[in-house]
Protein backbone atom coordinates (compact mmCIF):
# COMPACT_ATOMS: atom_id res chain seq x y z
CA UNK A 1 0.00 0.00 0.00
CA UNK A 2 1.31 3.48 -0.78
CA UNK A 3 2.58 4.42 2.63
CA UNK A 4 2.53 8.21 2.18
CA UNK A 5 -1.18 8.46 1.63
CA UNK A 6 -2.07 5.91 4.27
CA UNK A 7 -0.08 7.69 6.93
CA UNK A 8 -1.79 10.97 6.13
CA UNK A 9 -5.11 9.15 6.13
CA UNK A 10 -4.30 7.80 9.56
CA UNK A 11 -3.38 11.27 10.68
CA UNK A 12 -6.74 12.73 9.54
CA UNK A 13 -8.67 9.92 11.15
CA UNK A 14 -6.82 10.22 14.42
CA UNK A 15 -7.39 13.97 14.50
CA UNK A 16 -11.07 13.31 13.90
CA UNK A 17 -11.04 10.86 16.73
CA UNK A 18 -9.21 13.24 19.06
CA UNK A 19 -11.59 16.10 18.56
CA UNK A 20 -14.86 14.20 18.56
CA UNK A 21 -14.46 10.92 20.41
CA UNK A 22 -13.81 12.07 23.98
CA UNK A 23 -16.71 14.55 23.93
CA UNK A 24 -19.10 11.90 22.61
CA UNK A 25 -18.05 9.37 25.19
CA UNK A 26 -18.39 12.04 27.85
CA UNK A 27 -21.90 12.80 26.62
CA UNK A 28 -23.14 9.22 26.85
CA UNK A 29 -21.39 8.80 30.19
CA UNK A 30 -23.09 11.94 31.51
CA UNK A 31 -26.52 10.64 30.62
CA UNK A 32 -26.37 8.04 33.36
CA UNK A 33 -25.80 10.63 36.05
CA UNK A 34 -27.86 13.26 37.74
CA UNK A 35 -25.77 16.34 37.10
CA UNK A 36 -27.10 19.88 37.23
CA UNK A 37 -26.66 23.28 38.81
CA UNK A 38 -29.05 25.05 41.12
CA UNK A 39 -28.15 28.68 41.35
CA UNK A 40 -24.53 28.49 42.40
CA UNK A 41 -24.59 25.02 43.93
CA UNK A 42 -23.74 21.93 41.93
CA UNK A 43 -25.92 18.84 42.36
CA UNK A 44 -24.21 15.58 41.46
CA UNK A 45 -22.84 13.93 39.46
CA UNK A 46 -24.70 11.12 41.20
CA UNK A 47 -25.16 7.85 39.43
CA UNK A 48 -28.84 7.29 38.67
CA UNK A 49 -28.72 4.69 35.94
CA UNK A 50 -31.53 5.11 33.44
CA UNK A 51 -33.52 7.68 35.44
CA UNK A 52 -32.85 10.48 32.92
CA UNK A 53 -34.13 8.33 30.09
CA UNK A 54 -37.20 7.42 32.17
CA UNK A 55 -37.91 11.15 32.70
CA UNK A 56 -37.52 11.72 28.98
CA UNK A 57 -40.12 9.18 28.07
CA UNK A 58 -42.66 9.85 30.81
CA UNK A 59 -45.89 11.16 29.29
CA UNK A 60 -47.05 14.54 30.57
CA UNK A 61 -50.46 15.39 32.00
CA UNK A 62 -52.15 15.26 28.58
CA UNK A 63 -50.65 11.89 27.74
CA UNK A 64 -48.15 12.87 25.08
CA UNK A 65 -44.46 12.14 25.37
CA UNK A 66 -42.55 15.39 25.01
CA UNK A 67 -39.43 14.21 23.26
CA UNK A 68 -41.47 12.42 20.62
CA UNK A 69 -43.52 15.59 20.12
CA UNK A 70 -40.36 17.63 19.60
CA UNK A 71 -38.96 14.99 17.27
CA UNK A 72 -42.19 15.24 15.31
CA UNK A 73 -41.83 19.03 15.17
CA UNK A 74 -38.27 18.67 13.91
CA UNK A 75 -39.34 16.27 11.16
CA UNK A 76 -42.27 18.47 10.12
CA UNK A 77 -40.06 21.54 9.94
CA UNK A 78 -37.43 19.62 8.01
CA UNK A 79 -39.80 18.24 5.41
CA UNK A 80 -41.35 21.65 4.85
CA UNK A 81 -37.99 23.27 4.24
CA UNK A 82 -35.79 20.58 2.71
CA UNK A 83 -38.13 19.08 0.14
CA UNK A 84 -38.85 22.36 -1.71
CA UNK A 85 -35.21 23.28 -1.26
CA UNK A 86 -33.77 20.19 -2.93
CA UNK A 87 -36.35 20.12 -5.70
CA UNK A 88 -35.88 23.80 -6.52
CA UNK A 89 -32.11 23.46 -6.36
CA UNK A 90 -32.17 20.53 -8.76
CA UNK A 91 -34.38 22.47 -11.16
CA UNK A 92 -32.17 25.54 -10.99
CA UNK A 93 -28.98 23.53 -11.38
CA UNK A 94 -30.35 22.05 -14.59
CA UNK A 95 -31.44 25.45 -15.87
CA UNK A 96 -28.03 26.94 -15.25
CA UNK A 97 -26.03 24.13 -16.80
CA UNK A 98 -28.28 23.50 -19.76
CA UNK A 99 -26.57 24.35 -23.04
CA UNK A 100 -29.88 24.56 -24.82
CA UNK A 101 -31.46 27.11 -22.54
CA UNK A 102 -28.40 29.33 -22.29
CA UNK A 103 -29.60 31.48 -19.43
CA UNK A 104 -28.03 34.91 -19.37
CA UNK A 105 -26.92 36.77 -16.29
CA UNK A 106 -26.02 33.59 -14.48
CA UNK A 107 -23.34 35.22 -12.38
CA UNK A 108 -25.89 37.69 -11.04
CA UNK A 109 -28.49 35.04 -10.24
CA UNK A 110 -25.97 32.75 -8.64
CA UNK A 111 -24.66 35.51 -6.39
CA UNK A 112 -28.19 36.55 -5.41
CA UNK A 113 -29.58 33.13 -4.53
CA UNK A 114 -26.56 32.48 -2.38
CA UNK A 115 -26.96 35.73 -0.42
CA UNK A 116 -29.36 34.46 2.27
CA UNK A 117 -26.83 31.79 3.17
CA UNK A 118 -24.32 34.48 4.10
CA UNK A 119 -26.57 36.27 6.56
CA UNK A 120 -26.25 34.72 9.98
CA UNK A 121 -29.30 32.63 10.79
CA UNK A 122 -29.95 34.63 13.93
CA UNK A 123 -29.87 37.97 12.12
CA UNK A 124 -32.12 36.56 9.38
CA UNK A 125 -34.64 35.34 11.96
CA UNK A 126 -34.60 38.69 13.77
CA UNK A 127 -35.40 40.36 10.47
CA UNK A 128 -38.34 38.05 9.82
CA UNK A 129 -39.52 38.50 13.38
CA UNK A 130 -39.68 42.27 12.99
CA UNK A 131 -41.33 41.89 9.57
CA UNK A 132 -44.17 39.73 10.84
CA UNK A 133 -44.61 41.13 14.35
CA UNK A 134 -47.89 42.70 15.37
CA UNK A 135 -46.51 46.17 14.70
CA UNK A 136 -44.47 45.12 11.68
CA UNK A 137 -44.85 46.08 8.00
CA UNK A 138 -46.65 42.91 6.89
CA UNK A 139 -49.52 43.63 9.26
CA UNK A 140 -49.47 47.31 8.33
CA UNK A 141 -49.61 46.38 4.65
CA UNK A 142 -52.46 43.92 5.12
CA UNK A 143 -54.51 46.51 6.99
CA UNK A 144 -53.75 49.19 4.42
CA UNK A 145 -54.77 46.96 1.55
CA UNK A 146 -57.94 46.15 3.41
CA UNK A 147 -57.28 42.42 3.36
CA UNK A 148 -57.59 42.27 7.12
CA UNK A 149 -59.49 44.38 9.60
CA UNK A 150 -57.39 43.49 12.63
CA UNK A 151 -53.80 42.66 13.47
CA UNK A 152 -52.91 39.06 12.60
CA UNK A 153 -50.74 37.47 15.24
CA UNK A 154 -48.51 35.34 13.01
CA UNK A 155 -46.72 33.88 15.99
CA UNK A 156 -49.80 32.45 17.64
CA UNK A 157 -50.73 30.12 14.80
CA UNK A 158 -48.87 26.84 14.35
CA UNK A 159 -49.17 26.94 10.57
CA UNK A 160 -47.67 30.40 10.11
CA UNK A 161 -44.84 29.91 12.58
CA UNK A 162 -43.83 26.63 10.98
CA UNK A 163 -44.34 28.15 7.55
CA UNK A 164 -42.01 31.02 8.34
CA UNK A 165 -39.34 28.67 9.70
CA UNK A 166 -39.59 26.46 6.61
CA UNK A 167 -39.44 29.53 4.35
CA UNK A 168 -36.33 30.80 6.08
CA UNK A 169 -34.60 27.43 5.90
CA UNK A 170 -35.54 27.19 2.23
CA UNK A 171 -34.21 30.68 1.44
CA UNK A 172 -31.00 30.18 3.37
CA UNK A 173 -30.08 26.88 1.84
CA UNK A 174 -31.49 26.54 -1.66
CA UNK A 175 -28.70 28.67 -3.15
CA UNK A 176 -26.09 26.55 -1.45
CA UNK A 177 -27.68 23.34 -2.70
CA UNK A 178 -28.00 24.70 -6.25
CA UNK A 179 -24.31 25.44 -6.39
CA UNK A 180 -23.44 21.99 -5.05
CA UNK A 181 -25.62 20.27 -7.62
CA UNK A 182 -24.29 22.52 -10.35
CA UNK A 183 -20.72 21.56 -9.52
CA UNK A 184 -21.87 17.96 -9.67
CA UNK A 185 -23.48 18.35 -13.08
CA UNK A 186 -20.51 20.26 -14.46
CA UNK A 187 -18.26 17.41 -13.45
CA UNK A 188 -20.15 15.06 -15.71
CA UNK A 189 -18.30 14.46 -18.93
CA UNK A 190 -19.69 16.72 -21.65
CA UNK A 191 -19.15 14.05 -24.30
CA UNK A 192 -21.91 12.00 -22.67
CA UNK A 193 -24.40 14.79 -23.27
CA UNK A 194 -23.19 15.22 -26.82
CA UNK A 195 -23.57 11.51 -27.41
CA UNK A 196 -27.12 11.47 -26.11
CA UNK A 197 -28.09 14.44 -28.29
CA UNK A 198 -26.65 12.69 -31.34
CA UNK A 199 -28.59 9.57 -30.41
CA UNK A 200 -31.75 11.69 -30.55
CA UNK A 201 -32.69 11.70 -26.87
CA UNK A 202 -35.10 14.42 -25.72
CA UNK A 203 -33.99 16.64 -22.87
CA UNK A 204 -36.22 14.78 -20.41
CA UNK A 205 -34.72 11.49 -21.42
CA UNK A 206 -31.22 12.92 -21.14
CA UNK A 207 -32.06 14.14 -17.66
CA UNK A 208 -33.43 10.86 -16.38
CA UNK A 209 -31.04 8.52 -18.17
CA UNK A 210 -27.78 10.45 -18.11
CA UNK A 211 -27.75 13.32 -15.63
CA UNK A 212 -29.68 11.85 -12.73
CA UNK A 213 -27.82 8.53 -12.45
CA UNK A 214 -24.44 10.26 -12.60
CA UNK A 215 -25.62 12.90 -10.17
CA UNK A 216 -26.89 10.34 -7.66
CA UNK A 217 -23.84 10.38 -5.39
CA UNK A 218 -24.03 14.16 -5.02
CA UNK A 219 -27.81 14.02 -4.58
CA UNK A 220 -27.36 11.46 -1.85
CA UNK A 221 -24.89 13.80 -0.21
CA UNK A 222 -27.37 16.68 -0.45
CA UNK A 223 -30.23 14.70 1.04
CA UNK A 224 -28.17 13.28 3.88
CA UNK A 225 -26.62 16.61 4.83
CA UNK A 226 -30.06 18.23 4.64
CA UNK A 227 -31.36 15.47 6.91
CA UNK A 228 -28.56 15.99 9.40
CA UNK A 229 -29.01 19.75 9.26
CA UNK A 230 -32.70 19.26 9.83
CA UNK A 231 -32.16 17.07 12.86
CA UNK A 232 -29.91 19.76 14.30
CA UNK A 233 -32.20 22.69 13.48
CA UNK A 234 -31.77 25.32 16.15
CA UNK A 235 -30.92 28.91 15.25
CA UNK A 236 -33.98 29.82 13.23
CA UNK A 237 -36.80 28.56 15.48
CA UNK A 238 -34.89 29.61 18.59
CA UNK A 239 -34.56 33.23 17.56
CA UNK A 240 -37.95 33.46 15.87
CA UNK A 241 -39.90 32.23 18.90
CA UNK A 242 -37.42 33.48 21.50
CA UNK A 243 -36.73 29.94 22.62
CA UNK A 244 -40.35 29.19 23.45
CA UNK A 245 -41.39 27.21 20.39
CA UNK A 246 -44.77 28.95 20.37
CA UNK A 247 -47.54 28.24 19.97
CA UNK A 248 -47.76 25.55 22.61
CA UNK A 249 -44.24 24.26 21.92
CA UNK A 250 -45.16 23.13 18.43
CA UNK A 251 -42.01 24.61 16.98
CA UNK A 252 -39.61 23.35 19.61
CA UNK A 253 -37.01 21.21 17.89
CA UNK A 254 -34.86 18.51 19.47
CA UNK A 255 -31.85 20.78 19.76
CA UNK A 256 -33.92 23.60 21.24
CA UNK A 257 -35.06 21.08 23.84
CA UNK A 258 -31.44 20.12 24.43
CA UNK A 259 -30.47 23.77 24.71
CA UNK A 260 -33.14 24.35 27.37
CA UNK A 261 -31.29 21.91 29.57
CA UNK A 262 -27.87 23.38 28.83
CA UNK A 263 -28.92 26.86 29.93
CA UNK A 264 -29.54 27.80 33.53
CA UNK A 265 -29.51 24.33 34.98
CA UNK A 266 -26.53 23.02 32.96
CA UNK A 267 -28.23 19.67 33.23
CA UNK A 268 -25.61 17.48 31.55
CA UNK A 269 -27.49 14.37 32.66
CA UNK A 270 -30.66 15.13 30.71
CA UNK A 271 -28.71 16.78 27.91
CA UNK A 272 -26.68 13.61 27.45
CA UNK A 273 -29.80 11.47 27.34
CA UNK A 274 -31.48 13.71 24.75
CA UNK A 275 -28.46 13.95 22.46
CA UNK A 276 -27.79 10.24 22.60
CA UNK A 277 -31.38 9.47 21.72
CA UNK A 278 -31.60 12.08 18.94
CA UNK A 279 -28.48 10.96 17.15
CA UNK A 280 -28.86 7.23 17.49
CA UNK A 281 -32.55 6.46 17.37
CA UNK A 282 -34.17 5.24 14.16
CA UNK A 283 -35.34 7.97 11.81
CA UNK A 284 -37.96 10.09 13.51
CA UNK A 285 -40.66 8.82 11.16
CA UNK A 286 -42.22 7.12 14.14
CA UNK A 287 -42.42 10.41 15.97
CA UNK A 288 -43.89 12.07 12.90
CA UNK A 289 -47.07 10.25 13.81
CA UNK A 290 -46.97 11.72 17.29
CA UNK A 291 -46.80 15.25 16.00
CA UNK A 292 -50.06 16.93 17.09
Amino acid sequence: MPSGVISSLRRSLSLTRFFTWPPQVLTVYNSFFENYREGLTQVGPNFVGLKNYATLFTPDSSGSVDILKYAGNTVALWVGGAVPQILTALLLAIFFTSCRLRIKGQAFFKAVIYLPNLIMASAFSMLFYTLFSNVGPVNQLLMQLGWSDHVIDFFAVKFTVRGLICLMNFLMWFGNTTILLMAGIMGIDQSLFEASTIDGASSLQTFFRVTLPLLTPILVYTIITALIGGLQMFDVPQVLTNGLGTPNRTSTTLIMYLNNYLGTSKNYGMAGAISWWSSSSPPCSASWCSSP
Binding site: L13, T16, F19, T20, P22, P23, Q24, V25, L26, T27, I228, L231, Q232, F234, I255, L258, N259, L262, Y268, A271, G272, S275, S278, S279
Partner: peptide
Protein backbone atom coordinates in the same frame (compact mmCIF):
# COMPACT_ATOMS: atom_id res chain seq x y z
CA UNK B 1 -13.41 3.94 8.53
CA UNK B 2 -16.13 5.26 6.27
CA UNK B 3 -18.92 4.32 8.70
CA UNK B 4 -17.02 5.88 11.57
CA UNK B 5 -16.60 9.20 9.77
CA UNK B 6 -20.28 9.24 8.80
CA UNK B 7 -21.34 8.48 12.36
CA UNK B 8 -19.33 11.44 13.60
CA UNK B 9 -21.24 13.68 11.21
CA UNK B 10 -24.57 12.99 12.88
CA UNK B 11 -23.73 14.11 16.40
CA UNK B 12 -24.86 17.68 17.00
CA UNK B 13 -21.98 20.05 17.55
CA UNK B 14 -23.46 21.50 20.74
CA UNK B 15 -23.10 18.09 22.34
CA UNK B 16 -19.39 17.74 21.68
CA UNK B 17 -18.74 21.32 22.65
CA UNK B 18 -18.61 20.88 26.42
CA UNK B 19 -16.06 18.08 26.21
CA UNK B 20 -14.03 19.86 23.54
CA UNK B 21 -13.82 23.05 25.57
CA UNK B 22 -12.65 21.10 28.60
CA UNK B 23 -9.94 19.50 26.43
Amino acid sequence: AFTFIMAVMVIPKQVCAAGFVQL
